[in-house]
Simulated scan of single mutants.
Amino acid sequence: MAIRRNRNRRRLMIGIVVMVIIGLISFTVINIISLKKEQHDMKEQKQELQDEKEQLEKELEQANDLKNLEEQARDQLRLIKPGETIYIFPDDITKPDKDAEDTEE
């Protein structure tokens, strides 16, 4: 009887140890997968930020261009050169009509 108890206890202890090891391995694998996914997301975010940086650098280069400055002054501030006349049209006349475009197609 004592031998059976010892065997049962030994089997129970081995089972518990195996379950703990399986649990630790599972936790580690899940953690590794999670970190890989986060790494992938960070690489995508880094690429998006690099693209945005390049775009902003291009805009910065254009900001110092005299032609660009003149265009911005004319469009946004409605500035004109001496001797020029500015004509301002209502927005509904200058915007393309969606219904007209649909009928042309």
Rank of each mutant, 00 (worst) to 15 (best):
A2W: 00
A2Y: 00
I3C: 11
R4Y: 08
N6C: 08
N8H: 04
N8K: 02
R9F: 06
R10W: 00
R10C: 09
R11S: 07
L12S: 14
M13T: 15
I14W: 02
G15I: 06
I16Q: 15
V17R: 12
V17T: 15
V17G: 12
V18N: 11
V18D: 15
V18S: 13
V18R: 06
V20R: 04
V20C: 12
G23Q: 07
G23I: 09
I25N: 09
S26D: 10
F27A: 13
F27W: 14
V29K: 00
V29F: 00
I30P: 02
N31M: 09
N31T: 14
I32P: 01
I32A: 09
L35I: 07
E38G: 00
E38D: 01
E38I: 06
E38Y: 00
E38P: 00
H40K: 07
D41Q: 01
D41P: 00
K43N: 04
K43D: 10
E44G: 10
E44N: 14
E44S: 11
Q45L: 14
K53L: 14
K53G: 10
E54H: 01
Q55N: 11
Q55D: 13
L56G: 08
K58C: 13
K58S: 15
E59N: 09
L60R: 04
E61A: 12
N64P: 05
N64G: 13
N64Y: 07
N64W: 07
L66M: 13
N68C: 12
N68R: 07
N68H: 10
E70A: 01
E71I: 02
E71R: 03
R74T: 03
D75M: 07
Q76K: 06
L77I: 06
E84N: 02
T85A: 13
T85E: 12
T85G: 07
I86E: 15
Y87T: 09
I88T: 13
I88P: 01
P90F: 03
P90E: 13
D91I: 07
D91S: 06
D92S: 05
I93T: 02
I93R: 01
T94Y: 01
T94L: 08
K95D: 06
K95G: 01
D97W: 00
K98Y: 03
D99A: 09
D99W: 01
D99E: 12
D99H: 04
A100L: 10
D102A: 15
E104I: 05
E105Q: 05
